[in-house]
Simulated scan of single mutants.
Amino acid sequence: MRDIDKLRNIPMIHILKKLNIEAIEKKKEQYWFKAKWRNERTASVKCEGNLFYDFGDYSGGNTIDFIMKHFSIDFVKAVKWLRKESTSFSFDPPKQNSFSELKKKKSYCIDNVQQLQNHILIDYLNTRKLNIEVCKRYLVEVYYTVNEKKYFGVGFKTNKGSYEIRNKYAKLALGQKWFTWINNTNKSIIVLESWSDFISLLTLYPKCEESKDFLVLNSLSMLSKADQVLNVYPGLLFLLDGDNAGANATEKCLKKWSVIKSSVKDIRYLFDGYKDLNEYLMYKSTKI
């Protein structure tokens, strides 16, 4: 729904005031506060605009992500809460910030990789309405250490052997950022931005698992490195996100590949009106 973008763009400082969370301004429009989801003496969470970053567990996101974390609730319940409280918020779009200064090099170690079975991670995947049997075919459990602290999450392996890691609170990459090519020697390939969209696609349309190949970028920036894969196929299907970045990338790809390919299509109509396919799946599965 279109109001989702408005909800995720509510300035974080308005959310903190609503929740009576004391914030300390360190620099202009940058605030620090103590995480309510753990005991701590020093503020370790930073927010700016509509974004937050938790230095305690290296997670972050937008306003909706924060409400999910603060109340330990799923996406749908977070949206309900924000909609209910929306009259007290300003919807002026905040300045966009990449938090690039937070992406400093960290010391990490992968301790163990095993079959997906942890009920905490499975519960997390269930909140995203993903078919668990499909998840077990493509995802693993990764136990890892970052700066001497132990963590675990769902892992999606790239073609470089690195892992995209997700859990209820964290979103990060362990190792080199790269794409994941699922090559079943079919004649057409579907290009997606994230593994959650890939598994959402197989949840909604299970038959396409055998009829199509897949390129999961894991980051839109990987699109510039994917020519070696896309050159293999006569048919290209682009299922990138519905935001401005995804729309611009799709338009460029259509212009570039239509000249030399027999079939190049934009199939984002599969989630028309939503940010991406996983968001569509979550709303399709749960009526608000």
Rank of each mutant, 00 (worst) to 15 (best):
P234W: 06
I189V: 15
R2M: 15
L240C: 04
I122L: 15
E29G: 04
V146F: 03
K17C: 06
K18Y: 02
S162A: 14
I73C: 13
Y53C: 03
L116W: 08
L121P: 00
N97E: 12
K84R: 10
F271E: 02
W181Q: 02
K150Y: 13
I182Q: 05
Q228N: 09
F198D: 04
K225G: 01
I13S: 00
I10S: 01
F71T: 04
R38S: 12
Y269R: 10
Y151D: 03
S196C: 08
F91T: 06
L270V: 02
S258L: 02
G56S: 15
D266Q: 09
T63M: 02
N126L: 15
W257Q: 07
G155L: 07
A23K: 01
W178G: 01
D92I: 10
Q114S: 15
S285D: 10
G246Y: 03
A35I: 05
Y143S: 11
K77E: 15
F75M: 09
K69Y: 09
Y143E: 11
G60F: 04
D57A: 10
Q115N: 14
K207C: 04
S72R: 13
D57I: 07
F91I: 07
F271G: 02
A173N: 07
S196G: 05
K84F: 14
A23D: 04
E210G: 03
F214D: 03
K36S: 15
K261T: 03
S194A: 14
K103W: 07
N62D: 14
F71S: 05
S196D: 07
V142I: 07
E48P: 01
K168M: 07
I288C: 09
F89S: 12
I73E: 03
V113M: 14
Y205L: 05
L277Q: 11
E210S: 13
I24V: 14
L277V: 05
E141V: 06
G242F: 00
L230Q: 08
T127W: 01
S263M: 06
S221R: 01
K95Y: 09
S72G: 06
I199A: 02
K104Q: 12
N112S: 13
Y274V: 04
W32H: 13
F66G: 00
E251C: 10
K17L: 08
E251G: 10
K287M: 09
K136Q: 14
C135W: 01
A249V: 08
K261V: 00
E85Y: 12
V134T: 10
F66E: 01
N20E: 12
K6L: 15
S107H: 11
L121N: 08
I132M: 11
D227N: 13
D197M: 03
I120D: 13
A245T: 14
Y269G: 06
I73W: 12
K265C: 11
L82F: 10
N167F: 05
N147V: 08
N231V: 07
K284D: 08
